[in-house]
Design a protein around this nucleic acid. Structure first.
Ligand code: SF4
Ligand code: SF4
Lengths: 150, 150
DNA sequence: ATTATTTAAGAGTTTAATGTCTTTAATATA
DNA sequence: TATATTAAAGACATTAAACTCTTAAATAAT
């Protein structure tokens, strides 16, 4: 898999939050049930996003989680980096020790292009814009069935 | 990591064999030492490649492993598929259940392009051609230091 | 104040990838 | 035939990713 499960769950949750109840808190329980993701696991993942100030959380009744202003302007790339770190966008294809662009392996230049392609894919639009497009195009972010962009 | 360790080791071993002693058998011990890969682990990985007829093995004194005719014409893509299967080149970005190009997620089209980019990178040239280019450009496939394209 | 609701924190479990070790089978050479 | 050399096969161990469970802390409502 290109992205870790944690990143994929983080992305789906971010898109869900970008599309729902802007400004309000959504409980992690609700998000986990809508997206069919383990509640405790999702909680852990979202903690990375609040630690990176992409989200804000609030404890207690009617508490939950929401995108911060920074989070609404953020892209999926920011989400992935907050969760899994920048490795995927830095590391090389063959992982040879002591390697670099001088004295390269046969994949070096091609790989740099592909890696940029992955980055571009994730950095194309902000979560805010994605929610708009999602509404317009009815893109899916949940398992079969129940989901509405409201 | 984009590719599994098994695939990376398989790629490096394939390139090594493409560059060395064409037609002869190289012992897995030698390959593992030159490339700094665990001997037993590499043995397991290469078994996938012989099972897929990309390599031929021979037991006993002076035995070892070599690229088959098919293997010399194969690409890194064939190596990766023989080791890890075609998943990476088939699977989708977000892994939503019951998903497809109708009713897509926001990444669907971009992801298809990126995935082709990865495939192209690995399918660009045959192992045989790569060995030639390797010699011409002195590309690296081993850890620091000892390696010659002969 | 007490209780209920919610996230945070952290320990623990399971599963899959990675890596090691031992035994077996094939082959060459003496 | 006996011994050495090599890959194949498979059991075993370690590590990291993925997932679960329990307790603590914050907050709201009664
Ligand atoms: S040449 Fe580039 S891609 Fe290849 S191993 Fe070195 S750093 Fe990685
Ligand atoms: S729309 Fe395409 S990329 Fe997105 S989850 Fe579905 S199949 Fe995967």
């Amino acid at each position: 898999m290109l992205l870790s499960k944690s990143s994929v769950y983080g992305i789906r949750a971010s898109l869900y939050l970008a599309a729902h109840n802007r400004g309000q808190y959504n409980s992690i329980r609700e998000v986990s049930e809508e997206l069919d993701i383990s509640f405790h696991f999702l909680t852990k993942i979202l903690q990375n996003l609040t630690a990176d100030n992409l989200m804000e959380s609030y404890k207690g009744p009617n508490g939950g989680i929401r995108l911060s202003a920074k989070g609404r302007k953020a892209t999926l790339l920011d989400v992935v980096i907050a969760i899994d770190g920048p490795d995927l966008f830095v590391e090389c294809a063959l992982g040879l020790p002591g390697c670099g662009s001088s004295d390269p392996c046969p994949l070096h230049n091609n790989w740099a292009m592909v890696r940029e392609g992955i980055k571009d894919m994730l950095a194309r639009t902000t979560l805010e814009e994605m929610a708009k497009e999602g509404k317009a195009n009815k893109f899916r972010i949940t398992p079969d069935g129940h989901f509405s962009w409201q």
